[in-house]
């Protein structure tokens, strides 16, 4: 019983430590992003490595999701005569939930892990100290360009995922479910409102902050050499994925309350 209690208390302590460090990093990043110098070049560099380089992975994942969901809805609803509604349900799920969440989880894996391990390696080889020793700020040089790049690229990648996911789903609806492609396309366009799109995209700004700051926090906290880099990378992916999934529920509920109000 005692080791169980000890490990639970350890988890709670670590969780509170993470919340504290995360909030402090968020506050520092916000404060420092308001003052000169601004490193636009570093932001563009990160946009390329975080945004553009992630596009193929996001595209494949979104297309596969759109196709699978359409088949599941189509064949699942067939016995109730609901097959024609499958594309609509797929499109709605895609823009409100699956597009934003799957894209963010992909980014937490690909980009979050990359950021945590890169910063962790820089910490181990004293490059973070060198940035400070040369009279510059690691928050400005490392954290802010990555965070801004995520804040811009994640919503854009989600738009890409939604578009490709829906188009692939519609293609499957026509080819596998035998639905009229022009009719389902028109119906889907009418069905999805700007509000649906906005709710989905709005979530990604929160997810971008969770992925970026969690990865930077764990990267900067590396203290046990190369082994620590591996641990930080794993922790970063786990923590940001959990944050995305949990906050998704909270944000969904919040957005529904706002919509109804």
């Amino acid at each position: 019983m005692q080791p169980f209690v000890a490990s639970i208390s350890h988890i709670f302590i670590e969780m509170f430590f993470f919340i504290g460090s995360f909030s402090r990093l968020l506050q520092k990043s916000f404060k420092e992003s308001m003052t000169r110098p601004f490193y636009f070049g570093l932001f563009v560099e990160q946009m390329y490595s975080i945004g553009i380089k992630s596009a193929p992975l996001v595209a494949v994942c979104a297309m596969s999701t759109g196709m699978v969901i359409t088949i599941q809805f189509g064949f699942g609803l067939e016995k109730y005569g609901g097959k024609p509604y499958a594309p609509n349900m797929m499109a709605l799920s895609m823009v409100r939930e699956l597009g934003p969440v799957f894209t963010s989880l992909m980014m937490a894996g690909r980009v979050g892990a990359g950021i945590a391990s890169e910063i962790g390696s820089m910490k181990v080889t004293q490059q973070i100290d060198a940035i400070r020793a040369l009279g510059t700020s690691p928050i400005k040089k490392i954290v802010i360009p990555r965070l801004l790049a995520l804040l811009v690229s994640l919503p854009l990648l989600t738009v890409l995922a939604n578009t490709l996911g829906i188009l692939s789903g519609l293609a499957v609806a026509a080819l596998e479910l035998g639905l009229d492609p022009i009719y389902t396309f028109q119906k889907t366009l009418i069905m999805i409102t700007v509000k649906d799109y906005t709710v989905g995209i709005a979530k990604t700004f929160f997810f971008a902050i969770f992925i970026g700051l969690t990865a930077c926090h764990y990267g900067m906290s590396v203290s046990e050499g190369t082994r620590g880099v591996g641990i930080a990378t794993t922790k970063s992916v786990v923590a940001s994925s959990i944050l995305i999934v949990i906050s998704d529920f909270v944000l969904t509920k919040l957005f529904w309350i706002v919509e109804k109000w």
Binding site: T125, Q126, Q127, D129, A130, A133
Partner: peptide, 10 residues
């Protein structure tokens, strides 16, 4: 500050 390993930005 001159770092032990150089601490060059790789």
């Amino acid at each position: 500050y001159v770092f032990q390993g150089g601490a060059l930005f790789d």
